[in-house]
Design a protein around this nucleic acid. Structure first.
Lengths: 246, 246
DNA sequence: ACACCAAGCAGCAAT
DNA sequence: ATTGCTGTTTGGTGT
């Protein structure tokens, strides 16, 4: 069994060597920075990464209960019967103190990883699908050049309907809600102003829409088109080539 | 040194006992579910929690590069020269396979934690501050009963200005952007319809606002009030009492 | 269960 | 650096 001093030496040396450190312990946590927080005694896993990021995970749940951003300094010190991990981010004026009552295990290793993840099935993929298969939006719909869109902002798909009316399409991967409608409305109005056109259509493309959102959409004269986002591994080839280019 | 079979036994037994497991390894990862992803060879920390949640962390950055939600089943199996961690969430039709080339360390421990975090300085705290010190919003501003708000949705603060005009206040903890303005606009319109009033004011309360948002705010006849969110540890006493009540 | 929204959101790309 | 926006967002609250 190691002493508190041993743990401190192990930890501080590992961090100095930019190893990634994992520590399971019983602790309480105080944080002060963009907000302030306190977390009473319990068992957690603490991860300190080579870039100084720190994560605290409870034994259940997806998200960290506390964290510090990359760029932090860390020091583990003995304080009576406990160890205290002092973490601070000088630039961001944030600090954290983890009071460690008991260490269950501590391990560290130099980790190297230069890989980027490749994801298929995002909102961007959905927009690309509609650019390539515009008939999915509506019969006779013609997307305009993607270059031209960017001038008007972050519009997912811009096109012209079969009657020649400029049409903004906003894509959502999941259920479209009120904020999706207000977002569409904002884009439509932006286009009307910047192009000086009084008639611009808005289409919300998503697998589903909430009742309230549907109502608001119709009140504003926009329409909904049910579209499932793509989820093809085939897309990987294209993206992989793009990544390998760098 | 342990064999691949040893690691599998350790891992599978630990998960069966609902321990929290930490594994540092060189691996590649495939995920399929709400989207699909692939991550090539690199060193990562894998955390498997007692509720079945799984996190994969690269040696830098704040967020997990891959994850699975609570409720997953996990099995680590030997496959030739490698171990494969098969993770699946039957209900959500999600699955992940982590191909492990090399294990740096593996630890597990039964962790217990029933604590909830107490946070001060949230948007809700900001709204409460304005309810208690309405003069911060504007001279002569009087908040209306908080009960009454809930009928009309998630409005932060509803009140009456010194001229007797109903006023919606939307709070933002940080820089208010375009979506904050559209949100305010949605609430103001909702109130106008539900109360049958043609004149309702809107105030955006935040420490700062972006230029575009300011523009849109003024175009719509709303106003901005620079207010810093509260950040008092004193609030902890109140919240703690509330939590202890359970 | 669904709808809506905040988050100490994070991360990314464009400006 | 700031702005705007997506996210396998997560997590919480109210209906």
């Amino acid at each position: 069994m190691w002493s508190l001093e041993d743990y401190c030496t192990l930890f501080n040396d590992a961090f100095r060597r930019r190893e990634t450190i994992v520590l399971a312990c019983r602790c309480k946590i105080r944080y002060s920075g963009r907000a302030e927080s306190f977390l009473g005694d319990g068992d957690r896993v603490v991860v300190v990464k080579s870039d100084g990021a720190l994560l605290v995970h409870q034994p259940t749940g997806n998200a960290p209960i506390n964290y510090m951003k990359p760029g932090c300094t860390h020091e583990l010190r003995v304080d009576g019967e406990e160890c205290h991990l002092h973490t601070s981010h000088v630039l961001e004026k944030e600090k954290m103190e983890i009071s460690i009552e008991k260490v269950y295990f501590l391990n560290s290793h130099k980790l190297e990883d230069g890989q980027s993840i490749i994801v298929a099935g995002t909102e961007e993929d959905m927009a690309n699908m509609l650019m390539q298969q515009p008939e999915l939006v509506e019969e006779g719909f013609k997307p305009v050049n993607q270059e031209e869109q960017t001038k008007y902002g972050f519009i997912d798909v811009l096109g012209i309907d079969k009657a020649g009316i400029l049409t903004v399409v906003e894509c959502k991967r999941y259920v479209a809600d009120l904020s999706a409608v207000t977002q569409l409305r904002r884009y439509v109005e932006k286009i009307m102003v910047s192009k000086g056109i009084s008639k611009v259509r808005g289409i919300l493309a998503a697998p589903r829409i909430t009742d309230n959102a549907k109502q608001m959409l119709e009140d504003w004269g926009y329409s909904f088109k049910s579209i499932k986002p793509p989820k093809f591994m085939e897309d990987f080839d294209k993206k992989q080539r793009k990544l390998e280019g760098f």
